[in-house]
Write a protein that binds this DNA or RNA. Sequence first.
DNA 1: TATCCACCGGAAGATGGGGTAT
DNA 2: ATACCCCATCTTCCGGTGGATA
Length: 424
Amino acid sequence: MVTWRLAPGSDPSRPSPYISPRIGRGRITSRPSPYISPRIGRGRIIRNRKVLTDSYLPPHLPGRDFQITTFDEYLEPLLYDEQPFDLAFTGKTGTGKTAVARHVLVRKMEELAGAPVKFLYLNCSQANTAYRVMYHLNRAFGILVPPSGYPFDVLFNNFKSVFEGGRLRVVLVLDELDLLVKRDGGRLLYGLTRLNGDLIERSSSLTIVGIANTPDFLERLEERTRSSFKPKRIYFPPYGAGELLDILRERAKLGLVEGTWSEEALSHIAAAVARESGDARRAIDLLRLAAELAEKDGSSARLEVRHAEAALDYVDEGEIEIVIRTLPFHHRLVLQAAAELLHRGDPRPGTGAVYSRYSALARRWQMRPLTLRRVSGILRELESQGVISLEMSYGGARGNTKVVTGMALRPDRMLAKLSKLGVR
DNA sequence: TATCCACCGGAAGATGGGGTAT
DNA sequence: ATACCCCATCTTCCGGTGGATA
């Protein structure tokens, strides 16, 4: 899974514990987004920077015709004032789920203007508890409630009363729903789906469109939720190289100055990303980064293959430093422990080794060390933030454990950053 | 093929810090 | 001041896990 990249000046015969940011699945790795120049667009090559971000909704969504048509058809009952099915979009990050949802909803809103239909979109990475989702739903209907400290039931009943007031069809899109389910276990989902059954008014209804990265999140719901929430599924496969190329072409056409990019550079990015993940967001980030590198390159006024290559290799130390700086204290100590072990030559320190080193560090700070269970969890958190990379080691009679196989910076650089930030 | 190691990771409960209402 | 609420973080408990080894 992890391919090694040699650190500058290191022994080429030995892999160094230095992961390239394009692997992994962490936050840094999946969205490098390093704005090299603080200028806002209008460079020699970049015409419109906004187009080169994943929040931009393009007019066309290459390769997603089937999903768009299917979603459209599933929403058709709204035209006849009937309740649509619940839906679930599944697929990995950057496969166009959110884009398709927004694309279709925008069209439907125009199509159904004036009808008693309301579309709501909520991202559960921000509203990641049942209470916060309800808080936003209340606000969406103009009901002001405190952001915390209030009984959940009150918020829920507020929301319910919205439907009892008269005819109303609501389509609620819950993006990154798996994050909410992970915490809440589907209790909110259960309540929301049951809501329809409780309504006396048959011309009111709530339809839920859940968007999730993990395909098995439905299976992981608790039993009673699974029996009441039975969505139709729409699957989003990873993009292939051809589709990614179509996406990049369109973004280049809209976001770059005409004639300042080579087709080969786009193909290079598309092929690399298709091989690695099929994540369109990653491809778009790389396009922007490559364009920025090309603008900085004095010897050319064009985005060429070498800029695409450079973008693929780019490590943004500043970005990683920001992540490290915002790490809680014990996370830093765990990271320091792992970095020290790697630096001292242990190529694959396990959880046990990291824990004993960490404990010593914590005691040096006159703090009671967290439990092994917690540190095990912290290692996973560091991994998902792209700071370290982990592998499972199946050691037979010597037991199974996670091992740290690398980090976003060379261990000595990591230690230097940590001590600069005051952990020592 | 049974056992064992050194953890893994889910579940549930404790803790403490934030809030609101009376 | 008191009695509720919400919520993130951490601890405790405990049934796995999978290949090496006896």
